[in-house]
Amino acid sequence: MDLTLNIWRQTSKDSAGNFETYQLKDINEHMSFLEMLDVLNEQLEGQGKEPVAFEHDCREGICGSCGLMINGAPHGHLPRTTTCQLHMREFKHGDNITIEPFRAGAFPVLKDLVVDRSALDRIVQAGGFISVRTGSAPDANAVPVPKDEADRAFDAATCIGCGACVASCPNAAAMLFTGAKVTHLGLLPQGQPERYDRVTKMVHQMDKEEFGHCSNFGECTVACPKGIPLDVISQMNRDLLVAQLKGRSA
């Protein structure tokens, strides 16, 4: 298939960017979206031009590196799919495809389609862990966990930290990301001692990073390539309320 691509090009964080248009011919439908961009970049490099910078690593949908706005949707319109797992069979001959970086004030563009998502790391650093020094753990079967709770914790734990939830949100909120971690650890018995400190500190950090607030649009859960359910946000809000009643502060 032949395609027209409109791609955001930006030299560096502080420079202004603009869209450039590229034509691609004979794209195979079995290619992944990123392989299609590889073809473009091979052409550009062959002409001595700078290829389009984009982030990617595992190309198996699990590392969370890749993330592009494709025709206005993070990772494209196919549900529960990362950019690297999106294949060209989802497009057709003659399509116009607009490709932009994830847009959010908390994710500054570094170059072309590459953004800085380190704000998400700082939210985890604020409290997204269970404190257990190496070597101090009891036997793994000492604490049974009911299977349905373990499964719910797992569903929340599948977050890959790609930032699609933020990019899809009209407020650029990071509630789904943060809620997923709060829920994962808060549902497990191991996570109880720090449960209310954790949520307080993580939410505080989220606000500090200038992510927006949640207005219950629910775009995030639709965009999430792992299908993290929206109820992690209500779980987080519940925990936050309890934390406030307990008088916890960040």
């Binding site: 070597g135 753990a137 009891p138 079967n141 049974p144 497990l188």
Partner: peptide
């Protein structure tokens, strides 16, 4: 054997049986 203990204590959600054990 220590790795499984450590990871479980960190909250790694290993698969469990209905009795709640790994």
């Amino acid at each position: 054997v220590n790795i499984i203990d450590q990871a479980t204590a960190q909250g790694v959600p290993f698969a469990r049986e209905y009795g709640g054990l790994l």
